[in-house]
Amino acid sequence: MIRTVLIYATLILMVIIFFPLLSEIKPLSQLNPLAKRYVEDSTKNLNSPNIVTSIVVTYRGLDTLGEVTVLFLATTGIGFLIKRRKKNGEKGAFQASEILQTGSLFLFPIIILFGTYIFLHGHLTPGGGFQGGVLIASASVLLIMANVNIKLNHTVLHFIESLSGFLYVIIGTIGLFLLGSFLDPKFLPLGKFGSLFSAGAIPIIYSLIGLKVGAELTNIVDSLRAEGMEDEK
């Protein structure tokens, strides 16, 4: 009884907190100076049409580095808490039909290709490293769900993940040495506005982020997949 009263008192307090916040909000009529500077600098000096990408990769690059670190720590925690299964075969697991298995093997490289397309064009179109990484992870989800007994090669996954994280930091340090600020992508030629090889090192950095996110999310999903009988104990 007292619990219910406390819960609803908390909720009413939250509403009382939110209400003045809500009444203070005035709709923007123009960009604030920081956003204006980002938009102008991104179109003039950085040659990147997608401004969200240039903010994520360049202006707020340290935030993205921290975010990738948080993702890495969460993956490490999940891998630490869940033991990988030893045995390959599962008793009583639902075995997919021949058509489903062959079709998933056929679709797997195509979805990977689509994910690669999304993160390579991250500076031109909506999308980028995170979305492309999720597409790569969903390709492996398809593979896992259609072929129950498949075993992903964790050495390769860890190698891709560590290599892309390492190269990400290396590229940031190159920008620090050549241009004086960490993660500055302008040490590569800026190219023509709107073409694939433009905007300096932004496509390279975003591809590395995409590979890292894809490998980590694949790891998370593979850790959480259902196992049949417990054999270690």
């Binding site: 920081l34 956003a35 980002y38 903010i55 935030d63 993205t64 975010e67």
Partner: peptide, 20 residues
């Protein structure tokens, strides 16, 4: 350009927040 687009900074922040 800067008088025709919405604010890109909240989008960039939310992009990372979703993955986290």
């Amino acid at each position: 350009a800067s008088s025709q687009v919405v604010d890109p900074i909240p989008s960039a922040l939310v992009l990372t927040a979703i993955v986290i």
